[in-house]
Computed example of a mutant assay.
Amino acid sequence: MKNRVLALKRMILVITLLCTIVFFTSCTARKMKDYYSQKDNYITATGTISHIAYSDGKDILYYGFSNVIYPSNMNYHFEYYNFKVVGENFQILHEQNIDEKVNMGDEVTFIAAPEYFYDGYAIPIVSISVNGECLLEFEEGYANLLEWLKTTPIY
């Protein structure tokens, strides 16, 4: 009898923890979607590529930047310089041979929203230009990110 009560208490604890995790995950996902849907949250910056990597599934492109410069009238800035290109935006850049156009040490202008949502989070890029060539326009990248957020589980 004592073992059954103990097992029941453990099961209730596990269920409570799982419900709490699901609740906070859904709150974060909703907050992210709300944040990224507001165009005023996006800023333009220029930085030097210091890191390039692909996800294990080769469907996300990660960039790290150094020497990030903002327009002089900006009150916002990126606290972390880890960024990603996802979904249809990844496909667009891949079709344009991004690996040949963007290399370590290149200066790149990009648009992203500065908020980060958890440790290890990489901020999505919605526009990118290199050497005067715009590889991904803001309006298209913005719309693609919003679509990606609708269809992708947030971890």
Results as ranks from 00 to 15, higher is better:
Asn67Cys: 04
Asn103Leu: 15
Tyr121Arg: 05
Ile69Ala: 12
Gly64Glu: 05
Ala112Thr: 05
Asn89Thr: 05
Asn82Trp: 10
Asp56Ile: 05
Gly87Ile: 02
Tyr62His: 14
Asn89Gln: 04
Ile60Ala: 09
Ala122Tyr: 13
Glu95Asn: 13
Ser55Pro: 03
Val85Pro: 00
Asn82Asp: 14
Pro71Tyr: 02
Ile92Glu: 08
Asn82Leu: 09
Ile128Arg: 02
Ile111Pro: 00
Tyr62Phe: 14
Tyr80Cys: 03
Thr109Cys: 00
Ala122Cys: 12
Glu107Asn: 11
Gly57Leu: 11
Tyr118Asn: 05
Ile98Ala: 07
Tyr80Glu: 10
Tyr54Ile: 00
Gln96Cys: 01
Asn103Glu: 14
Glu107Gln: 13
Lys58Asp: 00
Asp59Trp: 07
Ile69Arg: 14
Asn89Ser: 15
Gly105Gln: 12
Phe83Ala: 07
Val85Asn: 01
Asn89His: 06
His77Pro: 05
Tyr54Asp: 00
Lys58Ala: 00
Leu93Val: 12
Asn97Pro: 04
Ile128His: 02
Phe90Arg: 02
Gly87Val: 01
Leu61Gly: 03
Met74Tyr: 10
Pro71Asp: 11
Phe90Glu: 04
Tyr70Glu: 06
Tyr81Lys: 07
Tyr70Thr: 06
Glu115Cys: 10
Asn97Ser: 10
Glu100Trp: 02
Tyr116Trp: 14
Asn89Glu: 05
Tyr62Glu: 07
Asn75Lys: 10
Tyr116Thr: 14
Asp106Thr: 04
Lys101Thr: 10
Tyr116Pro: 04
Val102Ser: 07
Met104Asn: 09
Asn67Met: 08
Asp59Pro: 03
Ala112Ser: 14
Val108Gln: 01
Phe117Lys: 09
Gly87Phe: 03
Asn97Met: 04
Ser66Thr: 15
Ser66Asp: 15
Ile60Thr: 12
Asn103Ile: 11
Asp59Gly: 04
Tyr118Gln: 10
Met104Pro: 06
Phe65Asp: 02
Glu100Arg: 15
Phe83Arg: 01
Tyr118Arg: 11
Gly105Arg: 11
Ser55Val: 07
Val68Arg: 01
Ile60Gln: 08
Glu107Gly: 05
Tyr62Ala: 04
Lys58Gln: 08
Asp99Met: 13
Tyr62Ile: 00
Asn73Leu: 02
Glu115Leu: 14
Ile98Glu: 00
Tyr121Trp: 15
Tyr62Thr: 06
Ala122Met: 03
Asp56Trp: 01
Ala122Pro: 07
Val126Pro: 01
Gly87Glu: 08
Glu88Leu: 04
Leu93Asp: 07
Ala113Pro: 06
Lys58Pro: 02
Tyr54Gly: 03
Glu115Met: 15
Phe110Val: 02
Tyr81Ala: 08
His94Cys: 03
Ser55Trp: 09
Ile92Ala: 02
Gly120Ala: 05
Ala122Leu: 07
Asn75Thr: 11
Tyr62Lys: 11
Ser66Ala: 15
Tyr62Met: 09
Tyr70Asn: 08
Gly120Ile: 10
Val85Lys: 01
Asn97Ile: 03
Lys58Gly: 00
Leu93Arg: 00
Val85Leu: 05
Pro114Leu: 10
Asp59Glu: 11
Gly105Ser: 12
